[in-house]
Design a protein around this nucleic acid. Structure first.
Lengths: 355, 355
DNA sequence: CTCGTTTGATAATGCGCTTAATCAGGGAGA
DNA sequence: TCTCCCTGATTAAGCGCATTATCAAACGAG
């Protein structure tokens, strides 16, 4: 019985096969890749003989060497700043990963998950130790929020092909992404509210503003403008759920708002708590819609009127864009916005006369 | 604005840095890997200068070339015969993947998911087109049931280091695995049933018998023997849930069994249906325990007395074994059995007098 | 009979990096 | 003064494969 433990016997190499078959390594290589338009030609007989020797010796080409020689790896990187398979976060990345796998599978690429550039203390980085681990791959897909957007710029500067899932903006370089249409989805919810008779609508979002939050707010503002519901600049609140207090709610209520768009479920729940303290209930006394889906899997989201990002489709599209880039089918920046799915829920109701 | 689309300008190479810094490539290499016990030494001053040039030129080492030169890739492969991120199957692999990622992260390895060797028609194979795609990795972890165990043997023959999650047996080669202790867990359930007064216990499993099924049955038989409950060889039924019919149930009942160990949830549910047709109910008239957890996420498992494989821990352990193998810390075969977790459920009750 | 062409193969180079072998020079000890 | 060893470097040889340039032989056409 042989064991597969560290077998130090040298791997069978192309040269071994060549020697045994009485041909040059070029012939072996050409036998292996028959359809590559190289100058080397192999007769049927020779090819058959070479293949026999390969089997006999158990030869298997070294993919690393192939990659180096070809300058192509057939590997797509997937990089996340957090754990790829989080536990607390539920399976937030899962649909995206599934989309990525679906699209990549059959395209002849493998998926490389970058887990190494991480120690117990230091967070994950692309440029760990000055070197870009992503380089093993032909290109990469970036998932999740990066703590430091300058890494993206550096990556782009290097000419490394990559696509982010979720919109990213840089003033300096043009980035590629497959994103959810948060602006459109938010706009749609405003229209929906309008149809239900809501005229005074507030937007309550977090204090830190990234691209995704920008999109939501932009969608809100443009819809309000379009519907002639402009209420001046102060119909948006930027405050984290933890610091959202009664005073803040007062300032919202003082504007006689009937519908609140809450950026996150946490905002919505916090608002509901504060409203309850005042004897007001959702949705009888106040409609609330949530602008998205929480990162963590939770049942409590189910009753809320909201929309959902097409996570699986975003993964697929990111792969499409990346492959197009690698094939040279694309020269300009590639940016796709995919529609979110509206979910009616139970927290957005028509305005009652009593309002 | 530059775009990161296919940038054809040649990558900055080690030679460029060397030339610019007025040193040899060996020095650049040594500057990059200071702690590798090579003969090349670099003074502080030179190192500083080289590093400056690296920054200036935006040099990043080519990991592929490094791998080829070192003969080490720092990549661990993860191979599944089915989709890594299945949708129908729920997230069966997810806990394993999480365990794998946890253990691999910080060990300085990346994870390569093999998704390429798959076309719409043909199933996934390790040796697609005669070549072993796994070779890009230093070693691999195999997940899920392989349709053809000969691939494992061939892999072992090649001396490729790998560990399977789940026990595998081959008469020809010694395999490495991190498995769940199905035998022990089954044995435990028998003991538990014995304590509750059950004396006549049946085992009902599927028609195809793999390692895991063997383990369960072995655990069952040894426990029965130990407790002096031997009922001859015919206390085990091998039949798929779809073909399990009333006649079969009769043959079980004729032995005046009070506890049935069902290999899968499907078996258990089928048995319950058949029992109900006879006016018998679980667990009043018959106790049933399920020997494991279904692959797909389903709520219907919750009420059943059963055990659960420690999937996350299996993933971690598989990585541990693989790394030990790669480090040469291990020479013999590495096989770990991890305990399952007993879950009381509600379908195993003490024997009533009426029985 | 000669010349261009096609077929089947080889030798040699390079991909970008690591590392073993080698070497120049400068103290320190005898 | 000569040898020995340590420091700081260079040279060159791979790693395993793809590919380009090159070549010999066979074959047809003119």
């Amino acid at each position: 019985m042989s064991t597969n433990a560290s077998n130090k016997k040298r791997r069978v190499t192309q040269a071994d096969v060549a020697r045994r078959a009485g041909v040059s390594t070029a012939v072996v290589s050409a036998t292996l890749n028959p359809n590559s338009a190289t100058g080397v030609r192999v007769s049927q007989d020779t090819a058959k003989r070479v293949r026999a020797v390969m089997r006999e010796l158990g030869y298997t080409p070294n993919p690393i060497a192939q990659s180096l020689a070809r300058g192509k790896r057939n590997i797509l990187g997937v990089f996340t700043y957090e754990s790829v398979f989080p536990s607390e976060r539920g399976n937030f990345f899962y649909p995206m990963l599934r989309g990525i796998e679906m699209q990549v599978s059959g395209a002849g690429y493998d998926l490389l998950l970058f887990t190494s550039a991480q120690t117990a203390e230091a967070p994950r980085q692309i440029f760990a130790g000055g070197s870009n681990r992503l380089g093993v791959a032909d290109g990469a897909i970036l998932l999740g929020q990066e703590p430091d957007s300058s890494e993206l710029e550096r990556l782009a500067d290097e000419g490394f092909p990559f696509v982010t899932v979720g919109r990213r903006h840089s003033g300096r370089v043009e980035l590629n992404w497959a994103a959810a249409g948060y602006a459109e989805a938010t706009s749609e919810i405003v229209s929906h509210g309008h149809e239900l008779g809501h005229r005074r609508i507030a937007y309550v979002g977090g204090a830190t503003i990234r691209e995704q939050q920008q999109d939501r707010e932009a969608g809100f503002r443009s819809a309000m403008h379009r519907l002639g519901l402009d209420q001046g600049p102060d119909c948006c609140w930027h405050i984290d759920p933890e610091t959202l207090d009664a005073a803040c709610l007062e300032s919202i209520l003082s504007r006689r708002v009937t519908l609140i768009l809450a950026e996150t479920l946490k905002h919505a729940e916090r608002l509901e708590d504060l409203l309850r303290d005042k004897g007001m209930y959702v949705p009888q006394d106040m409609s609330i819609a949530v602008l998205g889906t929480p990162l963590e899997d939770t049942k409590s989201i189910l009753r809320w009127t909201r929309f959902e990002a097409p996570r699986e489709e975003m993964g697929r599209e990111a792969v499409r864009l990346l492959l197009a880039q690698l094939d040279g089918r694309l020269n300009g920046p590639a940016q796709t916005t995919l529609p979110c799915k509206f979910i009616p829920g139970d927290t957005l109701r028509p305005v009652t006369d009593g309002h």
